[in-house]
Design a protein around this nucleic acid. Structure first.
Length: 425
RNA sequence: GUGGCUGUAGCUCAGUUGGUUAGAGCGCCAGUUUGUGGUACUGGAUGUCGUGGGUUCAACUCCCAUCAGCCACCCCA
């Protein structure tokens, strides 16, 4: 059978919206995830995981309608069940908490880094498979939970080298927003107004106003609220928590936490405090990720409610952020030593190599039989820092030529010195 | 789902008002007498010009469709 060029290109491309992770890409991902883990664990969050596949019902009435109806990868399994590949993690973790509602200790701190799938048109910052950190705090009703999540969010940015002038944490409250909507018109459908408010910055102001007038008979009260910059001007009991939270954030030196009445978030399950982390780079001015309180979700599984607040930063948006602020590190290969073989010494060299591995050196052996120059080129290409030459002479003398590939320096060492030199870095 | 832009070697691109053997740089491979790379020199491979159809004596260049990528909207990580 003839393989056509067309087939070749199709076969080597990853499926639309997914990414192949070659070693240099995977290194970056591992680096980001390890930072996420480091920060979460420093707050006492424990890692969990759940299945990629979930029954469709898990998402109906929990996630936003559009996400469930139009953006899921779904299929019917051989038993006739509707199955989806998880578009987000929150329903899964809520299900898990509900299942062991009584035996889990509260406050319960959980985090996970799941890959999620959404059938969407791809664009900057948006793929069809993505990873997101989900960190959730269960069992605390008070504003202290929000405060912890804000501190966590802040660290999740600064751990990557982000400065406070690079991003802003914008706070609002669904409860407050709904209360303000009620005041302007008690009969109005809150959810629709919330959605409209969420879109305000992205549409012409005139359109926003005319849309708003369709939904609210007396929009002036609401507009006044939306244009409020200083929360202390708002006299509404629903704003109390927010005021307290802003005060606490300020006391903790978080100068980039602000009140933003237009922040609403798309998911239906949020109940009170919501927030978004904004990239302040004018070239990439957008919400990177958000979070908020969703006190009702666990109770959807028929158990007593568990107050919950969580955040979910994504890998793609984070990477865009780090790129635009030049915060991506140069990551090197995990391998620290490349062994060049000269002559028929493969078997003899294995004993040396095993000793090196026993000492914790990560060694790759070139058994290609190519000339030394070619073997060195390969080591350089892979970015391996050290090179060890093993031939008949070395096996006899037990003295080895260790080459520092960056400087080009080469020295004769005993195996012991090889180990200590290579691991010194 | 809606709209805009783009699609020529692995990568970045050039390719004249359609004209007959499609180019450059980088990269890649090989060699410069066989145990040492990153410089230099020499040589080499690679593309049915995203795919399919149409117009034409002739298409990489024009038209249509399709796929893919990018960007914005929608939604959201």
């Amino acid at each position: 059978m003839k393989t056509t060029k067309e087939n070749m290109t199709q076969n080597t491309q990853p499926y639309k919206g997914t990414r192949d992770f070659y070693p240099e890409d995977k290194r970056l991902q591992k680096w980001m995830f390890s930072k996420w883990r480091e920060v979460c664990e420093s707050f006492g969050y424990e890692e969990y995981d759940g299945p990629i596949l979930e029954p469709l019902e898990l998402y109906t009435s929990k996630t936003s309608e559009e996400v469930v109806n139009e953006q899921t990868y779904s299929f019917t399994d051989r038993g006739g069940r509707s199955v989806v590949m998880r578009p987000e993690m929150t329903p899964t973790v809520s299900r898990m908490v509900a299942a062991r509602r009584q035996e889990l200790g509260y406050p319960l701190r959980l985090y996970s880094i799941p890959n999620c799938f959404r059938y969407e048109r791809t664009q900057r910052g948006r793929t069809r498979e993505f990873w997101q950190l989900n960190a959730d705090l269960f069992g605390i009703e008070g504003i202290e939970a929000e405060m912890e999540i804000l501190l966590l969010t802040d660290r999740l940015m600064t751990v990557f080298g982000a400065k406070r002038n690079m991003y802003e944490i914008r706070l609002n409250s669904r409860k407050l927003l709904n209360s303000q909507i009620d005041k302007s018109d008690p009969s109005v459908e809150q959810q629709e107004v919330v959605r409209l408010v969420d879109k305000r910055d992205k549409m012409p102001e005139a359109d926003f106003l005319s849309e708003l007038k369709k939904l609210v008979s007396k929009p002036d009260q609401l507009l006044k609220f939306l244009d409020t910059k200083d929360i202390s001007n708002i006299e509404d009991p629903a704003a109390d928590g927010l005021k307290e939270l802003l005060e606490m954030a300020k006391d903790n030196g978080m100068t980039n936490v602000v009140f933003m009445p237009s922040v609403a978030r798309g998911f239906d399950y949020y109940t009170d405090i919501v927030f978004e982390v904004f990239d302040l780079d004018p070239e990439n001015n957008r919400a990177m990720f958000g979070g908020g309180r969703y006190d009702g979700l666990v109770a959807e599984f028929g158990v007593e409610p568990v107050p919950t607040i969580g955040i979910a930063p994504g890998d793609v948006t984070l990477q865009n952020f780090l790129e635009s602020w030049d915060l991506l590190p140069k990551l090197e290969t995990e391998t620290n030593l490349y062994v060049v073989l000269v002559g028929e010494v493969f078997e003899g060299a294995q004993k040396i190599v095993s000793k090196l591995r026993d000492e914790g050196v990560r060694v790759a052996v070139d058994m290609s039989g190519r000339k030394v120059g070619k073997q060195i080129e390969t080591a350089v290409k892979k970015g391996i820092p050290y090179l060890l030459v093993i031939g008949e002479e070395e096996l006899k003398s037990e003295q080895f030529k260790l080459k520092d590939l960056a400087s080009g320096e080469e020295k004769e060492y005993s195996l012991e010195r090889v180990v200590s030199t290579v691991l010194a870095e």
